[in-house]
Design a protein around this nucleic acid. Structure first.
Lengths: 220, 220
DNA sequence: AAAAATTTTTAGATTTACCTAAAAATTTAA
DNA sequence: TTAAATTTTTAGGTAAATCTAAAAATTTTT
């Protein structure tokens, strides 16, 4: 059994490893709002427990066991987010911090029943996939909105940025999960994207378009 | 803000204070599965924070602030128990340990929304009253089943013993919350009680009868 | 390929919540 | 009302997770 803190380290390493192969001490420290010296200490401990592979000065990678724990926490986090949004009417930009606490509740029974209660959701309120109880993720086929061409259409199925500011902005624009969109124009000047929604036409910046994920329903 | 451990001490002191006025060091130690020396340390800390009044060798009492925190934790614990039983189909003897963890999740918003989601329940799955968000308990009028006379009837509305063994036993006998009962006889020999339920007649020991709480609907 | 900059680790402390063993205070019993 | 038993506290220590400051290793730049 891991401590609350160990679980957080494993989760952080897991997420960082999605971007870079070798996860660096400083990156972990920054993410966890702590100091590199503290990270080194913890990494040694996790290595002794067989949860990470660690070579001095070379960064860390999760072992199979460490990855399993991390995925399990990700699963819990995302299921709780679904609960908060679908059952307790939280907004998608309000759930992260609470889920951060709830993800450490230890009962396996609890999570399996929660999963069932929620109808075995495949994605959380931001479109991030929820692993099943065996740690398997459903295959997802996302394209960044920015990569679409004029005339392409699809459904908003996720975001790759979870800040409250960004999510509130999308909400205001009416760009929420499940919405159908079509690219009507791409502005030469600033690369901003003109989008047709069912009921209106809007313009979004490149920066916003980068972080919206689309499941395409065919090019044109 | 209190730590997880501090919250548990306050909760334990609160519950012990329901039985004895002056809560003793040893009693706390036993309840918390720790040593008296550790309790003394923690009590000093809580006293410094103004959460308990403490005189050496004389035991502790909660201050107003300490009591507020304790009641808040009791509220959270009992609401989560309702959630587990009513929404996730846990049995009433399975919920305590998980609720023990969930009660420390810090978001006020979460608890208010959970309360609403559950329909503002007044009691947990064992019949224990749930304080409202201002810490006020609904008035409850319980009589111990053992105190009823032959011919008296009422509704099972609570239990004063939460062990899994006891709860499982009640379940098997069909003595669950909400059931209508009438006392048909009290055995001279061993004080065991003969009870009429809607569909059957059963006999329970004095020991069991002591821990069943009845809201009476009139003597006969 | 040195020098400079950056990253990482080590060394030594601190805080929280524990512990054991022994001393002190209180309560109970003779 | 002493003596014995019990309860509580003190003193001194430990383990987990942190920290700062300085040393060591690595990477980047010139």
């Amino acid at each position: 059994m891991q401590s609350y803190t160990e679980e957080n380290y494993l989760k952080t390493i897991y997420h960082l490893a999605e971007k870079t192969t070798n996860v660096q001490t400083n990156a972990i420290a920054e993410q966890m709002q702590t100091k590199p010296a503290s990270v080194t200490d913890m990494i040694k401990k996790l290595a002794e427990k067989g949860l990470v592979d660690y070579i001095k000065y070379q960064g860390v990678t999760l072992t199979e066991a460490g990855k399993n724990t991390a995925v399990d926490i990700v699963r819990k986090h995302r299921l709780w987010e679904v609960f908060l949004v679908n059952k307790l009417n939280f907004k998608w930009d309000e759930v992260h911090d609470v889920a951060e606490e709830l993800e450490h509740i230890k009962s396996i029974e609890l999570i399996e029943r929660l999963d069932e209660f929620l109808g075995f959701p495949k994605a959380d309120p931001h479109g991030d996939p929820i692993p099943d109880k065996n740690g398997r993720f459903a295959k997802t086929q996302f394209i960044k909105l920015i990569e679409l061409k004029i005339g392409d259409s699809g459904t908003i199925t996720g975001v790759s940025q979870h800040s409250s500011a960004f999510l509130k902005h999308l909400e205001k624009l009416g760009l929420t999960l499940g919405k159908q969109i079509q690219i009507s124009d791409i502005t030469d000047f600033d690369g901003s994207v003109e989008i047709k929604l069912s009921d209106k036409q809007i313009n979004i910046s490149r920066e916003v378009a980068k972080h919206i994920l689309i499941s395409s329903n065919g090019k044109n």
